[in-house]
Simulated scan of single mutants.
Amino acid sequence: MSSPPYTRAIPAVPLTRRPVPALRAVPAGRWDAALAGVFLLLMVVERIGAADRLHGGLPLALALSAAVAGPLAVRRTRPLAGYLVGAAALSAEALFVLPSPLSPYADLVALYSLGLYAPRRRAWFGPFAALLGMAAYFADLGRAYPVIPAGVLFLWLLGWAVGYGTARRSEQREAARLLLRREVVAEERARLARELHDSVGHTLNVVLVQAGAARRLLDREPERTRELLRGMEHTGREALDDLDRVLGLLRRGAGGWDEAEGTEGAAPQPGIADLERLAERLGGAGPRVRVRIDPAARRVPRSLDVSAFRIVQEALTNTVKHAGARSVGVTVRCAAGRLTVEVCDDGRGVPAGYTPGRGLLGVAERVSVLGGRVEHGPGEPGGFRLRAELPVP
């Protein structure tokens, strides 16, 4: 296996981090505690200013103000419990003490937080609790001016709906992000599996064919056997190079990779120009392979170049493994904006009840990604035929 390209010592460079704004560094819980504190301070000042109208009920009013404002400190962590406590204190304040003009706004913030931070089922307690709280708060005023409580209730329900809708949209975005991530991971796995199957799987099959031929010729043709062994050695090195390249793709990790390009420092992937070498290597111990390449096909984009090679490689691998063919014809031509790849052999043909295996499914995936079409099945004079058409951009 070739040595990794990164052998030069790299001097250490101090990492610099972007300064985090001071406001963002403050935990959300402290902001909530500060919000509760501000509401409580304002409500205490208002209650003290209205002490003459409370008729000795200032201690109870202050306690209820704390019960209304205090739950805002846990509006993210305990939104339902906090809202129910605040709404109950607001109702008690309206029924037994002089209502504070600030308490409803604290209740509105708590109701909005319930829609925003509570789970879906718990959030739906908000509208019902708000309805009961409004009925208690406007118990006296509602008889004379029913429009006022109706308008306030509408405003409160609107605040809850804004929080609830924002939370649901955030959930949908997160679900879409996770789904996209799973799809990307699955696609990367499929591409890596296809790469291993196409490159390493093919070369190992060639090694097996060469090994079987060498075993049969070992006693009768020692010189021929030596040639086959040299071919096995060369093919094995190619398999290790392919494996090293695919492992390089894995090392690149989240940075992504382009199937048409090799990793940095590794040999580029083979293309149409390498089909003659592929046929020569396979013909040393397997069927005779004839390759015909249209000159225009050698100038297609790199993605099509690599894909055409992999399609032929998979077709020849199937021929070696299953067909028992004596000869194979490979034709690659480019005309009318389409690259056509066709592989035909004179082997046993298609068995009864045949279904495509991983290799042919990988070919179909590769062709589909490029917007082409593929067909495979019995050849006209017999054997097996695979034909793929890829649009040339």
Rank of each mutant, 00 (worst) to 15 (best):
V320L: 15
V320R: 06
V320D: 04
K321M: 11
K321N: 09
K321L: 14
K321S: 13
K321V: 10
K321Q: 14
H322P: 02
A323T: 05
A325S: 14
A325C: 09
A325R: 08
A325V: 10
A325H: 08
R326I: 02
R326Q: 14
R326F: 02
R326L: 07
R326N: 12
S327D: 06
S327N: 10
S327M: 06
S327K: 10
V328I: 11
G329M: 08
G329Q: 14
G329Y: 03
V330H: 11
V330P: 07
V330R: 11
T331N: 12
T331M: 04
T331A: 13
V332L: 09
V332G: 00
R333F: 04
R333P: 00
R333C: 00
C334W: 01
C334T: 07
C334K: 00
C334G: 03
C334Y: 02
C334Q: 13
A335K: 05
A335T: 11
A336P: 03
G337L: 03
G337Y: 02
G337F: 04
G337D: 10
G337E: 03
G337N: 06
R338I: 07
R338T: 15
R338Q: 15
R338D: 14
R338C: 10
R338W: 05
R338N: 05
L339A: 03
L339Y: 05
L339F: 01
T340A: 11
T340F: 09
T340Q: 12
V341I: 14
V341P: 11
V341E: 09
V341C: 11
E342V: 11
V343Y: 00
C344Y: 03
C344G: 01
D345P: 11
D345L: 06
D345G: 06
G347F: 14
G347C: 05
R348L: 14
R348F: 12
R348T: 14
R348A: 15
G349E: 13
V350F: 07
P351E: 02
P351V: 01
P351Q: 09
A352G: 06
A352V: 09
A352E: 10
A352D: 09
A352Q: 11
G353M: 13
G353F: 10
G353A: 12
G353Q: 12
Y354F: 15
Y354I: 00
Y354M: 05
T355E: 15
T355Y: 05
T355C: 04
P356E: 08
P356K: 06
P356N: 01
P356R: 03
P356F: 04
G357Q: 03
R358Y: 07
R358G: 04
G359S: 13
G359M: 08
G359H: 03
L360K: 00
L360C: 01
L360D: 01
L360I: 10
L360A: 04
L360E: 11
L360F: 13
L361S: 07
L361P: 01
L361W: 00
L361M: 06
G362W: 01
G362F: 00
G362E: 05
G362Y: 00
V363N: 13
V363D: 12
V363A: 08
V363M: 09
A364T: 13
A364V: 10
A364M: 05
E365A: 04
E365R: 09
R366C: 08
R366A: 08
R366T: 08
R366S: 10
R366D: 05
